[in-house]
Simulated assay, not measured.
Amino acid sequence: MTEPPVLVADYFDGHSARAQPVRLAIRERRLLIEGDGVSRSVPLRQVGWPERQRHGARQAYLPGQGLISAPDAAAWDAWATASGLRERLVVRWMQSWRGVALAAALLVVVLVGSWRWGLPAAAHGLVALTPIGVDEQLGALAFEQFEHQWLQPSKLPTERQAALRARFAAALERGQAVERARGAAAPLPAWQLHFRASTERGLGANAFALPGGHIVVTDALVELLTDRPDVLVGVLGHELGHVRHRHGMRSVVQVGLLSALSSLVLGDFSTLLTAAPVLLGQAAYAREFEFQADADAARLMRANGIDPADFGVLFERLRRQQQARPGIELPIGLATHPPDAERVRRMREAAPGP
């Protein structure tokens, strides 16, 4: 029988800091340790083989806190190879710059794919499983907070508010009739239209939707479009689109998933570092939500004989208002909205004629 390769190393018994010179050999899937006063036979499956490093001593952990150490790394590696010990694939991969580069590239592909398709799909699935009552509760709490901090009772006459609600309801009915004629009608979500004045440091000319169907329009926006009620119909259709697609709940879920992924990848070492991907990612998702709500608004406008391009009137007037009053606060989410021209172009393309 051929004698197995032998390696001289240092043995620590786990009780004393004194090293004992020993000879190592592997036979019949056991590590044999022989030296002056030392004789051990340990099954290989019970030996801990730390990941090989490029520099430094080689070590092996034994049951009962024992340790084998070999300062000559090259001799250890040659002995291990001759004894039939094989490194795990992941260790060999990590020792190769090509393997590291490939792993980094695959990680980037996975992260980009998760961000672009995986997280939105997961959020959509989770929201679909969430009862609509959760939206209603969340929306009611959010609306109460807005009322407390940024909103005041509307100064619009009650008759005008009623007329605007009736106009929007009639526009929705015509839109549903057109959709039914095409065989593509979907039930409208429950909605409540609230008119509110903005506080001095509040929302300005704005409209927004909250989960559960709360649609808020400020007096300033109504006055901005007082001569273009058709455009206001499009604005309300856009906000109802957010309600229909449950964008509020999806935002909440996606922020949570983004935060979890960001912490997993970057670790909890810096609040700013982990928050940046969440903010950037959610901004991109918000743009997709805007395009989706714009498509709903465009269909509603077409169904009511309104050119979706008229939505550009709102953008132009908001821009002029901002230029005239540079200190005025921008509407909520303006930073996450896509460019105006692109939105108008998409609205034209997303709404086929009746």
Rank of each mutant, 00 (worst) to 15 (best):
T2W: 00
E3T: 11
P5Y: 01
S16Q: 14
A17E: 14
R18Q: 14
A25V: 04
E28C: 02
R30T: 03
I33S: 01
E34W: 01
G35N: 06
Q46V: 00
P50N: 08
Y61C: 08
G64L: 00
G66D: 05
L67Y: 00
D77T: 05
D77Q: 08
L85V: 10
R88Y: 00
V91E: 11
W93A: 12
M94E: 12
A101N: 09
A104Y: 02
A104E: 06
L107R: 05
V108H: 05
V110E: 06
W115K: 04
L119F: 02
P120G: 07
A122T: 05
A128H: 11
L129K: 09
I132W: 08
G133H: 05
Q137G: 14
Q137R: 15
L138I: 15
L138S: 10
E144G: 15
L151M: 13
P153Q: 10
G175A: 13
A190V: 14
H194A: 10
R196K: 13
G204C: 09
F208Q: 11
A209L: 10
D219W: 05
R228Y: 06
H242R: 10
H247G: 00
L261T: 13
S263C: 11
S270V: 13
N304V: 03
G305P: 09
D307I: 05
D307C: 09
A324T: 10
G327C: 07
E329Q: 10
H337R: 07
V344S: 01
R346S: 07
R346G: 06
E349K: 11
A351N: 09
A351T: 12
P354K: 01
